[in-house]
Design a protein around this nucleic acid. Structure first.
Length: 271
DNA sequence: AGTGCGGCCTGTCCGC
DNA sequence: TGCGGACAGGCCGCAC
């Protein structure tokens, strides 16, 4: 489910319930996630106070004095704040229980997510170290993306979805931002002009900011009775709209597969 | 270093 | 109603 806006919405949603809390217990019901959940996560996190809840790309970082828990939601993961006494449901793989009786509960049906533990600088962790810049930071600009793209033969769509190029652009927002920038997703990254990279950088920032704003409007409902984070997708112009008219020119939206992922685009507006 | 895949999982939907 | 296959908002790890 989550792309960067969902992960950031999740971070903002859990932060007030988690920051400053002390861990009473860690319950691992299913240790087989993307990687095995390390024993040290449960062992070392207990009795620690959560100093901060941060995000790097789509990874969530819960910092303590003893080390940092690294969480990733994969394709189908979600986090919610529950009363620790509420019985877990299927796919509720992990609880971090706090001394106030609440728990941070990870649910992830497909188990592509992760829960890791590191006692050194989490940004130097082997999964985080090679990540590209945050898309909403000043480091992500036309100069950077244009230079990075030179000589690349792969498609522009796969290029911007590569987390080592820029983090946080998932399958939905890749299609949406290429539509906004008027770039054909099949075009080789190395053959896109500087001017078009300028439009693309702006499109990526705009679409992500809008999506985060949407999540933000419902943040106070984050912990609802049904536990679902109150996140609504922004109005998507091309994603999942194969055959529907392009909102700009009316041409039917096309769908194709790139790197085993569906891409949606307007064959007229995007060249 | 860049590129191209396979693979990890479950749930849902669609056509037969 | 059952069944097989495709597909789903991610991304690592490997071979070349």
């Amino acid at each position: 489910m989550p792309e960067l806006p969902e992960v950031e919405t999740t971070r903002r949603g859990i932060e007030p319930h988690v920051q400053g809390q002390t861990v009473r217990d860690v319950i691992v019901r299913q240790p087989q996630l993307r990687w095995p959940v390390p024993k040290a996560l449960a062992r070392k996190l207990v009795a620690q106070k959560i100093d901060a809840v941060e995000r790097r790309g789509k990874y969530l970082l819960m910092r303590t004095q003893a080390g940092t828990a690294i969480l990733h939601l994969g394709m189908s993961g979600s986090l919610r704040i529950v009363d620790a006494r509420v019985p877990p449901e299927t796919h509720d793989h992990l609880d971090i229980v706090f001394t106030n009786g609440q728990a941070l509960r990870l649910r992830d049906p497909r188990r592509f997510g992760a829960a890791l533990w590191t006692e050194t600088d989490p940004l130097a962790h082997k999964l985080l170290e090679p990540l590209g810049p945050e898309p909403l930071s000043d480091a992500f600009d036309t100069d950077y993306l244009y230079a990075k793209s030179r000589g690349r033969k792969g498609s522009i769509k796969e290029f911007i979805m590569n987390s080592h190029v820029v983090v946080g652009v998932g399958n939905i927002y890749a299609s949406e931002s290429l539509f906004r920038a008027g770039i054909n997703p099949k075009r080789a990254a190395g053959r896109v002009s500087r001017a078009r990279y300028e439009a693309l950088v702006k499109a990526i920032k705009d679409v992500l900011v809008e999506a985060i704003k949407q999540g933000g409007t419902t943040l106070r409902d984050f912990v609802r009775e049904d536990g679902q984070p109150g996140y609504f997708r922004i109005r998507l112009k091309v994603y999942d709209r194969a055959g529907e008219p392009c909102p700009v020119c009316g041409t039917p939206i096309k769908q194709l597969v790139q790197g085993q992922r569906s891409t949606y685009y307007c064959p007229v507006c995007q060249r």
